[in-house]
Computed example of a mutant assay.
Amino acid sequence: MRAAVVISPLASAVLAGCVVSQTQGGAEHLAAPDGAVYEGVDTRLLDGELVNFVVAMRGARGPDDVTAYAECAAAQYALIRGYGFARQVRTTVDEKNGAWTGDAVYTISPALPRGTRTIDAEVVVAACRENGIPTV
């Protein structure tokens, strides 16, 4: 029996060759917002293949832009570590006076992990570059 593979909205857009809108979770807008300022990523290895990404930005249209930034960071980090995949564990987003922060936890792995929030790191990094969203 083959398992179904569910990939992130960013990866889906690259495979489809267009920008899509998601109604349940993930990045609603895939292209970087006009005037967005990406203020950096703080990466913390929590345990083996469990990694925390704290991202900061201004000019986000909403939480999905911050989530997309964290996903781009996670995908690039997975590639840097020699892994091909990541799975989102959780992401929280906060906004204060126009400053957005995201706190995301991902697992990284050499093989496709179980779960519904998995990403192919190479595909996602390519989508991030194409859409003007920085990675690590």
Rank of each mutant, 00 (worst) to 15 (best):
P110H: 05
G102L: 02
V5P: 00
K96F: 07
G82E: 06
D120N: 13
V5W: 03
G102C: 03
N97V: 02
E71Q: 13
L112E: 00
G132T: 09
T116V: 13
A75R: 09
A60K: 04
D64Q: 11
Y106F: 15
A73S: 14
L112H: 05
R90E: 06
V51I: 15
G115F: 10
V14K: 15
E39L: 15
L30Q: 14
R87Y: 00
G102S: 04
N52F: 07
V66L: 09
V41T: 14
T91I: 15
P110C: 00
E71L: 13
C18T: 15
D65M: 04
I80R: 12
V55T: 14
V55R: 02
R90A: 08
A70C: 13
A73F: 11
A60E: 04
Q24G: 01
G48P: 06
P63T: 03
L46M: 09
D103R: 05
R58W: 04
R114D: 14
V19F: 05
M57S: 12
C72S: 12
R61G: 10
L15S: 08
V37C: 07
L50E: 12
L46Q: 04
V54D: 09
C18A: 13
T116L: 13
T116I: 12
Q22G: 02
A111F: 01
V93H: 06
A73Q: 08
T92C: 00
A16L: 15
S21G: 09
A4N: 03
V54P: 01
V124S: 06
N131P: 00
V89T: 03
V124L: 13
A99P: 02
T118Q: 12
S21W: 06
V55K: 01
G82D: 06
V5G: 02
T23C: 06
V123E: 01
G26E: 01
C72L: 10
R2K: 09
S12K: 13
G82N: 07
T91D: 05
C18D: 10
K96R: 14
T92V: 07
I80Q: 11
E28I: 10
E39F: 05
G25K: 10
C128K: 09
Q88A: 03
G132S: 07
T43G: 00
E28K: 14
T43I: 15
E122H: 10
Y69Q: 12
R114T: 06
E95C: 05
V5S: 08
G84M: 04
V19L: 13
T101V: 07
W100H: 01
R114K: 11
Q88T: 07
E28W: 03
R117L: 14
A78F: 10
T23L: 12
T107F: 10
E122Q: 11
A11D: 12
I108P: 07
A121T: 05
A32P: 02
N97Y: 08
T92D: 10
A4I: 08
Y77F: 15
T91G: 02
G84V: 04
F85N: 07
Y38D: 09
